[in-house]
Amino acid sequence: MPRVVYNTATTLNGYLADDENSLSWLFAVPGADEAESSFSTFLSGIGALVMGSTTYEWLLHHEGLVESPEKWFYPDIVSFVLSSRRLPRLPGADVRYRSGDVESLWPEVAAAAGERDVWIVGGGDLVGQFADAGHLDEIRLSVAPVTLASGKPLLPRRLESDSLRLESVTAAGQFAELVYSVRRPSEP
């Protein structure tokens, strides 16, 4: 069974993006290259990824992927986009558009990942759905020295300390990298 990992950057006060879904706050932080240095190692262990429609649309527009689909970041990883809306397709990319609940989707995602991990790219509510379904194993955060007055929350669910265990803390440039394991509801 693959592990499910939420790996993301967040502000100090727990926002993924501002109210307009912008990540400009993240790109302005000095030392981001150092924080991203281990990302290729992380990505090599990913067999499937899942993202919500807001994350997907941000990637499409920010990277100009509709005009240049060959720039898709994850050509060798099965990608799932969850949405109830019809979204632009990326020719040549293995992007599977699905709707419905996480539990119904889980067998297909797990099969696509095989022996490797599943990366929940975002957003926070989607991660919350995986946590609610008992399919979240790890949270990896790169915490940036930025605060926002409001925005898109990191994980709009209540997870108590008895279900989270701090595994590691590392400094990478201006970022604090935190890794928490998540105890599934059925575990003691």
Rank of each mutant, 00 (worst) to 15 (best):
E167K: 08
L43V: 15
L105P: 01
V66K: 10
K152S: 05
V121S: 05
L136S: 04
H62G: 09
R98K: 14
A113T: 10
F42S: 10
F175C: 10
S40N: 13
G124V: 06
G114R: 13
R184H: 11
V143A: 06
S99L: 10
E63Y: 10
A172I: 03
A113W: 01
D33Q: 14
W25Q: 04
G134H: 09
Y97S: 09
E34Y: 02
V5H: 07
V109Q: 08
N7I: 00
A111G: 04
R86E: 14
P107N: 08
L166H: 06
G64D: 01
S181V: 02
S83E: 00
Y6R: 06
P2Q: 03
E70F: 05
P88M: 09
I139G: 00
L155H: 06
A111L: 12
V5M: 04
H61D: 15
W119E: 13
L105Y: 08
L136Y: 02
D132P: 00
S68D: 11
E138H: 07
S53C: 06
P185S: 09
A149N: 05
E34C: 07
E103L: 15
P88H: 03
A171V: 10
L105A: 08
L49K: 08
P30A: 12
E57N: 15
R85G: 03
T147Q: 05
R98I: 06
Q174P: 00
F42N: 04
L12V: 08
L148D: 12
S40D: 14
A35D: 12
D132G: 03
S44R: 15
I120C: 08
L159V: 15
G14Y: 02
S37V: 01
P145Y: 12
S79A: 15
E187M: 05
N7S: 06
P2F: 01
G134I: 07
N21D: 15
R89N: 01
S83P: 00
A28K: 15
V146L: 03
A144H: 13
S83T: 11
G14S: 11
P107L: 12
A35V: 05
E138N: 04
E36G: 03
Y97E: 04
S53Q: 14
E57D: 12
P185N: 03
S186N: 03
W58F: 08
W25H: 03
D101K: 12
V169C: 13
A32W: 04
P145Q: 13
D19K: 14
A131N: 06
D132V: 04
L166G: 00
G52F: 03
S68W: 03
Y180R: 02
V146I: 13
S38N: 12
E115M: 05
E70R: 15
S104M: 12
E160H: 11
S79E: 13
F42Y: 06
E108F: 03
S84E: 12
Y56F: 01
